[in-house]
């Protein structure tokens, strides 16, 4: 049982950091949702807020680590041009059923040598690589707001809803990026 360097980084980028992000989001959302009058005692608020601060900042940091490893480590392996020979942009991909030494995942998808795969790049990867960067920005803003207002959010339902909106938007951006990432890694793995 072994993983190559590239496989290890895709596991760190997608599975390890992605799982941490999901856990932190679930905990954070539950904590934010329960910041309502009459639900928690003063002692309970103090105890819960600490967990909420940690959870939301872990989510933000995880989102940053995910986009940084994705963009600067994994993405160059995905997009490197390996297949062109003369005028044939995808010569190295001929007969391929998965990407390989002469056919990067992007070349493989765009070449359509193994079915109609070009849209996985044109829609999936193109959206994933951009929308993913919205997640850490939104998650950091949400974490700041949660720490800045703290328990005061209990007394301000509208503001609490606005922060939840920001928090969920960060998650939604990560879901688009993460879901396409999972599918892309099935169709054209970085190996």
């Amino acid at each position: 049982m072994e993983l190559s360097t590239r496989e290890t980084w895709t596991v760190i980028h997608g599975l390890v950091l992605g799982t941490l992000f999901l856990l932190a989001f679930a905990g954070g959302l539950a904590g934010l949702w329960s910041l309502r009058p009459g639900l928690i005692t003063a002692a309970g608020i103090k105890e819960r807020m600490k967990r909420l601060y940690w959870g939301t900042w872990i989510m933000a940091v995880t989102a940053w680590l995910t986009v940084i490893t994705g963009t600067w480590i994994v993405y160059p392996w995905y997009r490197v041009k390996l297949s062109p020979v003369g005028d044939n942009l995808y010569a190295g991909c001929e007969g391929a059923i998965v990407p390989g030494p002469s056919c990067s995942p992007r070349d493989f998808l765009k070449s359509n040598v193994s079915g109609a795969t070009a849209e996985w790049h044109g829609l999936g990867m193109e959206w994933k690589e951009h929308i993913g960067w919205a997640a850490p920005i939104l998650a950091t803003a949400a974490a700041f707001l949660i720490v800045y207002y703290g328990p005061r959010l209990i007394a301000r339902p509208w503001l609490r809803a606005a922060v939840i909106t920001l928090f969920v938007a960060a998650f939604a951006a990560a879901v688009v990026a993460g879901a396409f990432g999972a599918f892309l890694n099935k169709v054209a793995p970085v190996i």
Binding site: P37, I40, T41, T140, F144, Y148, R152, L166
Partner: peptide
């Protein structure tokens, strides 16, 4: 809200919160 009154929290201006929303 009695549980908040018990915590004795000081009030905070909304400027920093507004800045975070707009900048995002």
């Amino acid at each position: 809200i009695p549980e908040l009154a018990e915590l004795g929290l000081a009030d905070k201006p909304d400027g920093p919160g507004a800045a975070a929303f707009l900048a995002a």
